[in-house]
Nucleic acid binder design. Structure first.
Lengths: 131, 131
DNA sequence: CTAAACGCTCACATTGATGTCAGGGGCAAG
DNA sequence: CTTGCCCCTGACATCAATGTGAGCGTTTAG
């Protein structure tokens, strides 16, 4: 398939797909006239890239983890493994951070509901002191 | 305390603290000469702002949730509540996304370790097909 | 009083993924 | 051949939070 179809199938813009290739995240075979051609593997690959980007990884990080254009080698694999473990830790602590933010938000929601339940027009007085 | 102390106590740069004020996330009392002064509540507040920003909220979203400069009113509170619930859902789905990315990463790590354990120099051939 | 350390505003720079526009070519159907 | 739709590259624009630096006032310690 060409880039337009890959784009509609993955929901990722043509622009972004070319960008991924530019960053070494995605390879494509080119037709004689230079048009990019893809297969089913590329669809999965793009989905994975999206998942990683959405999780806050930078494209260069993803590129370092993915032996995508370079020769596979023990050295490279060990390097990738280091980065993967670093990123895994980052994702875990990002989840913790989001969980903390969500719980703080829950307190705010509760306070706000209490405020709305009251009849007097009192200060909710939000400073975060209640968390 | 003045801005420098708030900065060191929260780990947030002076620049960012002024930016927060600019965006309506933080209020400060000013000395006659225009210098910002803060108290303990501001420390908590800044920490909360940081938690929200780190969780991927935009400053305008935080501003909408926080009746910080505006008069508290039922209308405002209801509006804030709507946004808070929207954001809560966003945070939850962000956590799901990160969890999915982390699990994909775990597969990659495992594959990579298998590759490194082998003695032959075989293709790891990563396309994401294994997830 | 002076100097160091701090604060103020204004304004321009940066980063990363993506949008958008321009100018030009590729390819199938009528 | 022309029409229409797809593709190519390249370049500039965007957003959001933050960095950085200039130019100038303030507070504090000696």
């Amino acid at each position: 398939m060409r880039i337009g179809e890959l784009s509609t199938r993955t929901g990722v813009s043509r622009r972004s797909l070319r960008y991924y290739e530019d960053q070494g995240l995605l390879v494509s075979s080119r037709s004689p006239s230079g048009q990019r051609h893809y297969d089913e593997d590329h669809v999965r690959r793009v989905r994975l890239i999206q998942a990683f980007l959405a999780a806050g990884m930078s494209s260069s990080t993803i590129a370092e983890m993915a032996p995508c254009m370079a020769e596979p080698s023990r050295h490279r694999a060990r390097r990738a493994l280091t980065i993967m473990n670093r990123e895994r830790a980052r994702l875990s602590s990002a989840m913790d951070g989001i969980a903390a933010a969500r719980s703080a938000l829950d307190h705010l929601i509760e306070d706000n509901q209490k405020y709305l339940a009251k009849d007097t027009d009192d200060e909710p007085g939000w400073t975060g002191a209640e968390g």
